[in-house]
């Protein structure tokens, strides 16, 4: 790691102010991605602003029928929360599928979505469940939040404070993990809320994306067979030593169909 200045923020406004005063600050949430990145010397922030002390960013509450997850809530907390599992079991299951127990004990939802790893699970939840991202200065709709690989709509210094998930009628997440990293090669979140159906795919492309053709078919008939014949184009999908674009495209259909079946 390159050397940096470390400080703990005392409040959200303190964190944002510190960030504004720094040459090049990084917020530190759970650190499950940032610390490995620093260890590989792939980033050299002048300042690390640790958000661990910000109680206001922690915890899960129900608000206006939505499940609101504080940005510093860990994956383990989301997976183990009856306030999540009872209304949105798909979200608890997704959190349970992230990384390993030690990663889930440290990693946070805010850190995950701000990092916007194309193979991370949470982007599928945010987009697939039509969530709203709350920051220190505004709210951002799910479809506007993830802009590209490792890119989000967040402005420099802007801090995610919470993610608000509306409760769907039904939803499920199916993940085909990378055998080594256990990130998603393909992960598909499917949800239905009244007339609206969302199918969000992570892992397959440069950023999480929706599959309108599947959504339309499911809006007519929310059944596995409705998506069985629909495939996404392999063009532009990710390619690595574990999976070709063609295989990823195939898995999108399989995982979507299984997610619909699991959503019941």
């Amino acid at each position: 790691m390159y050397e940096f200045n470390y400080r703990r923020a005392s409040s959200v406004s303190d964190a944002v102010a510190s960030s504004g005063q720094s040459d090049d600050a990084s917020y530190l949430a759970g650190g499950m991605t940032l610390i490995p990145v620093l260890k590989f010397r792939l980033a050299s922030p002048s300042d690390i602003i640790d958000l661990a002390g910000l109680g206001e960013l922690k915890g899960i509450r129900t608000e206006n029928g939505a499940v609101v997850v504080g940005a510093m809530t860990t994956h383990a907390e989301v997976a183990g929360s009856s306030e999540v599992r009872q209304p949105i079991p798909a979200l608890a299951d997704l959190a349970e599928s992230i990384g390993d127990p030690q990663v889930r004990n440290r990693g946070t939802i805010g850190g995950s979505i701000a990092n916007a790893d194309p193979a991370a699970d949470y982007p599928a939840a945010v987009v697939g469940l039509g969530a709203t991202v709350h920051t220190n200065s505004r709210t951002i709709g799910a479809d506007d939040f993830f802009t590209d690989m490792f890119e989000t709509a967040l402005e420099p210094g802007e801090l995610v404070t919470a993610v608000s998930f509306p409760v769907p009628d039904r939803a499920a997440y199916m993940k085909f993990p990378n055998p080594a990293s256990r990130y998603a090669i393909v992960g598909v979140m499917v949800s239905q809320s009244g007339e609206e159906v969302r199918v969000a795919v992570t892992g397959a492309g440069g950023s999480v994306f929706r599959v309108p053709e599947m959504e339309q078919a499911l809006a007519v008939n929310f059944a596995p067979e409705a998506v069985a014949g629909i495939s996404v184009s392999a063009d532009g999908l990710n390619e690595d030593i574990h999976a070709s674009p063609e295989y990823r495209a195939h898995l999108v259909t399989v995982m979507a169909r299984r997610a619909v079946a699991a959503a019941g």
Binding site: A180, S181, I241
Partner: peptide
Amino acid sequence: MLENCAYDEESGQLLSGSLTDYC
């Protein structure tokens, strides 16, 4: 089933150079 030490055929870079890639 799982392990493959893969090099890029052109550059000779090790593609499976960490435990996030080499299973």
